[in-house]
C-alpha cells in the first residue's frame, strides 16, 4: 500500500528518522515497537502527511494515495462538542455523503463501544472514553489505512482486549493498519508484521509468525555448573550460550542439541531438564534494542 524509501527526518540537529525504508503491504497489521524517542510517532506523522521528510520519499505502492484515519497519541479533542457532533465533523471532512453520515457515526460508535454515550460532551468523557473516541474518529469514513498511535493506552484490561479484538476484526475485513505501541502483548496479539525501531533506524523487521517461530531456543539444565566445559561447548556453535548450569541453544545451534547432550553426558553431567521454547517478543525486543 505504501512504500517508504530512504526517509530521513531531522529536527534541527536531531535525526528522528534515519534513512529508513519500509514497505507497508495491503492488508497487513504492522506493529512498530521501540523505546521512547525511537521515532515511532514521527514515522506515523510522516505517513499521515503531518510532517514532511527531510529527504527520501513516501509513496503509494500502486494507484492513489490511500485514505487515512489517524489516531494520535495525545487524546485532544474540541471539548465543547458532543461525541456525535465531533464525529459528524470528521465524517463530513472525510467526504462521507451527507445521507450516510448518521449511519457511519453509528457504526463507528458501535465498533468502539460508545453507542450509549453518543450525545455526551467530550469534556465530560473519561480517559478511556476519549481513547475509544480517538479510535472511533479514525474509523469514520472507512479509511484504507489506519495509523494508530498507542491505541489502547489508558484503557483497563477489558477495554484493551476490546480494542485488540476490534483491530483483529478490522484486519479480517482487509484493512491495512499501522500500530505504534509500547505494549508488547498488544503487538503480539494483533500484528502480522513487526518492526523494531530505535534512534530512527529499523533494528529488526519480520512477519510476526516468522519472528516468533524462527527464534526458538532449547534450554538444557544440568546438575552442576557448566564453566569447566564451557570452551568445548562453545566450539560447537556461536549461538550457544552458557549461564551457570543452563545451556542455551539458539537458532541454528538447536540442530546440535543431540551433540550437546552427548558431550554433557560424557563429561559426567546429569541432565535434569530439557525445554524447547519459542522466544517471546520481549526477548526479541530486548535483543534488538540492546
Amino acid at each position: 500500500m505504501i512504500k517508504i524509501t530512504n526517509v530521513t527526518k531531522q529536527f534541527y540537529s536531531l535525526t528522528a528518522i534515519d534513512n529508513l525504508s519500509l514497505r507497508l503491504p495491503q492488508g497487513e497489521v504492522l506493529g512498530i515497537l521501540g523505546p521512547n524517542g525511537a521515532g515511532k510517532t514521527t514515522l506515523l506523522k510522516l505517513i499521515a502527511g503531518i510532517l514532511h521528510p527531510t529527504s527520501g520519499s513516501i509513496q503509494p505502492i500502486s494507484g492513489n494515495w490511500p485514505r487515512i484515519g489517524y489516531k494520535p497519541e495525545r487524546l485532544l479533542f474540541p471539548n465543547h462538542l458532543t461525541i456525535t457532533r465531533y464525529l459528524e465533523l470528521v465524517a463530513l471532512v472525510s467526504n462521507v455523503p451527507t445521507n450516510r453520515v448518521a449511519r457511519s457515526i453509528r457504526h463507528s460508535l458501535q465498533q468502539t463501544g460508545l453507542e450509549t454515550m453518543a450525545h455526551r460532551k467530550i469534556k465530560e468523557c473519561s480517559k478511556g472514553m476519549r481513547q475509544r473516541l480517538a479510535m472511533a474518529q479514525a474509523l469514520i469514513g472507512n479509511p484504507d489505512l489506519l495509523l494508530l498511535d498507542e491505541p489502547s493506552s489508558g484503557l483497563d484490561p477489558h477495554g484493551q482486549a476490546e480494542i485488540n479484538q476490534l483491530i483483529r476484526n478490522l484486519h479480517q475485513s482487509g484493512k491495512t493498519i499501522l500500530i505504534s505501541s509500547h505494549r508488547l502483548r498488544e503487538i503480539t496479539e494483533v500484528c502480522t508484521y513487526l518492526v523494531i525501531l530505535n534512534h530512527g533506524r529499523i533494528l529488526y523487521e519480520n512477519s510476526m509468525a516468522s519472528a516468533l517461530a524462527a527464534r526458538a531456543q532449547t534450554i538444557i539444565e544440568t546438575d552442576k555448573d557448566l564453566s569447566p566445559i564451557q570452551d568445548a561447548l562453545l566450539t560447537l556453535h556461536e549461538d550457544i550460550q552458557i549461564d551457570g548450569n543452563k545451556l542455551y541453544l539458539r537458532n541454528e545451534a538447536m540442530r546440535l542439541r543431540r551433540q550437546a547432550l552427548v558431550m554433557l553426558l560424557h563429561a559426567g553431567y546429569d541432565v535434569t531438564h530439557v525445554e524447547q521454547r519459542r522466544k517471546t517478543l520481549a526477548e526479541i525486543y530486548a535483543e534488538a534494542v540492546q
Binding site: 499521515a48 502527511g49 484515519g69 489517524y70 489516531k71 494520535p72 485532544l76 470528521v90 480517538a134
Partner: peptide
C-alpha cells in the same frame, strides 16, 4: 493551530 485538529487535517 491546535493539536486536536490533527485527525481532521489528515483527512483533507
Amino acid at each position: 493551530n491546535e493539536a486536536e485538529n490533527y485527525p481532521v487535517i489528515v483527512r483533507l
